[in-house]
Amino acid sequence: MRRKKGFSILLQIVCWAFSLIVLVPFVLILLNSLKPSAEAAFFSMSLPSEFKWDNYVNAFVKGHVLRGYYNSLVMSSASAIIGVVFAALASFIIVRSTNFTNKVLYGYFFFGVVATGNMVTTTMIMSKLHLMNSITGAILLLATQGISFAMLLFTGFIKGIPRELDEAAVMDGAKAETLFFRIIFPLLKPVTVTGIMLNFLGAWNGFETQLYILTDSKKWGAILSMYGVYGEFSSPWSKDWGLISAYIVLTIIPVLIVYLIGQKYIIEGMTAGAVKG
């Protein structure tokens, strides 16, 4: 028994030691964000000789942090909600009505989990539809990119909801959409929250999509704006690492807040969807 306890403590130590590999980079960037430029360029774990809060002020002023936050918030929330609601509707029909067409449709949507998108032709279609360099365009594209994985989550979850509920509703003569939004959708809450959070994070962090679609820097989200500062305000041989680090911390904070609040939903929903799917 005592041996078992010793072993458990040993495991604990090994795990925490390993977790440093994940944590140290975040601590490093936080420390560097408070250092004067010359000191930050050493990239060391030492404490700042003086706390230079100016880095954060500069990031806000020069880097248009607030504009980036606003754009990211609009694009990420709108695309997450659109993608998840559309995916939920489609998944419900595909799971409940298992005819040939719907089986084909399942494969059709599932292809998007595996296949790589084609940004070159996507930009071509987007420009034909006058959606290039527009926030609306970015929202629709980001929503599309989240649909397939969200459907994987929803189809797995809906299989576990008894059909009797649907039939009870038809007795009341309710319309299909009413039935869905009144009765089924509330039951999908855990997986909906997971889907919205994953798509929100995916859109917030989706660098490649914004890089291709948004050419006007005023429309860039937080990450792309930060990358603009990374490339623009400092020449490659003398980057202001204090400023860049402060900006990075500012782009990470909203994401970490979402993650810390929703980690239960994110992790459990994701594994349930992945393992069942």
Partner: peptide, 25 residues
């Protein structure tokens, strides 16, 4: 209970912005 029209929103978005670009590619 399960009308196909409920698949349309996802289908249209996914087809126009994912499948068509993929096939065109």
């Amino acid at each position: 209970l399960y009308p196909r029209r409920m698949v349309f929103p996802a289908f249209i978005l996914y087809t126009i912005l994912f499948m068509i670009p993929t096939v065109m590619g």
